[in-house]
Design a protein around this nucleic acid. Structure first.
Lengths: 125, 125, 125, 125
DNA sequence: GTGGTCTAGACCACA
DNA sequence: GTGGTCTAGACCACG
């Protein structure tokens, strides 16, 4: 599991870490029960501060994607407890769909794109 | 075209304005050629700073959704110049799809959701 | 609204801030809609770091006690969205009740204590 | 007396052990004079480090709930030496009551809850 | 001027 | 050795 961070991106680093870990879990690259690197290790390996990684882990923990065992170590849970997409994501989807429409993407093309992405296709992170 | 802004939202106000205008265009509520309110008018009506509206209009202009003619009028173009979704949106879609998967949403449910949203269903903005 | 922090306490400073603000809201000292001090102001006034106050505000925001208006300022919401006490608090109550029993406090004395505290009595923070 | 420990809980393991033993004493499951398992036995049975159990026993001993005789046996005392709730617990109660208020729990509901918990009701540990 | 984010250190409780 | 917490600075997006 290697992270590729864009330090000049507008999305905060801790969110980039969070997102890539979620993608890793969804793609199966990170199996449920698997141990994540320690905060220190991931921070050094990625060239960011411990607290940044810590914040990423905190949000993942809050959303139920990972749990930290007090005896040391952070482990992948495998699924959020939620039963549906949050309203925030629905709003984002709505805007994306609108932009797609205006960019001339047909309904079928858009739906195919969504299906492909759901199945892990459409490479590059 | 009434804007509903959430001042306690995590998304910046100027982006909320931008997004809602894009949604308005995509839904047909704002027709191509239609004139948008002046910055001052929209700012007053919405209770936000003029700079904020200005920034929203700027990004819309940059993306080709609106144009400003010499006399200062702002009109809807009707479609972005882009031929596809920007990489930023692809990344967002990828994360949304991953979260959906982990929330237990099946491929078909997700695709149906995307189709519904593309067609303007799934209410509330 | 003055905070009294115990820097040698075992409970983290950000939690002490959080707790005292919750107590302030419940006691009515902080009315719903009232503006809280800025992070910087509270940090300086209390002699702690900005990030510590920031963390306190973040947790309060997550629990629905306050909201931050993007136009600047943090405002008291007045009530958490929750409908009941979290399991964590139930566990804590259980231990407290057990300790009270073993300390020789009778059922009525304990219940009276709880009632008094609910009504804001039993002074000192 | 079986311990159920949550290694992903925010409360330290040694405190979970301590709390459950106190609950056991208060509920009568652990009678005064009864012998507790050795540190080693409890550690092995629970899958935690001996140091952790040792720390739990130490705090219990400090608070007067158990005593250790010369031969190493640890027995239940049956009541803390204290005559009232410690200030720490009063503070915790105050916060819990405030949160309950803000969560919309009425005085009577809260008092009933406290009474029920004092009497050992409201299941699950 | 506001909050959000990040850094480079540091200390401490826990196990 | 692990995560949690804190500090004293700093930069940036937003409004």
């Amino acid at each position: 599991m290697l992270l590729s961070l864009d330090f000049s991106s507008k999305t905060p680093i801790y969110l980039q870490i969070r997102n890539q870990i979620i993608l890793g879990i969804a793609s199966g690259e990170l199996a449920a029960g698997e141990k994540l690197p320690t905060i220190r290790a991931l921070a050094e390996q990625s060239g960011v501060n411990m607290m940044t990684v810590s914040k990423a882990y905190s949000t993942l923990r809050q959303d139920g994607y990972i749990t930290t065992d007090r005896r040391g170590g952070t482990v992948v849970t495998g699924s959020s407890g939620a039963g549906g997409l949050s309203g925030h994501y629905l709003g984002a989807l709505r805007v994306i769909a609108a932009e797609a429409r205006l960019a001339g993407i047909s309904e079928e093309a858009f739906v195919d794109l969504c299906r492909g992405i759901y199945n892990g296709g459409v490479d590059n992170g």
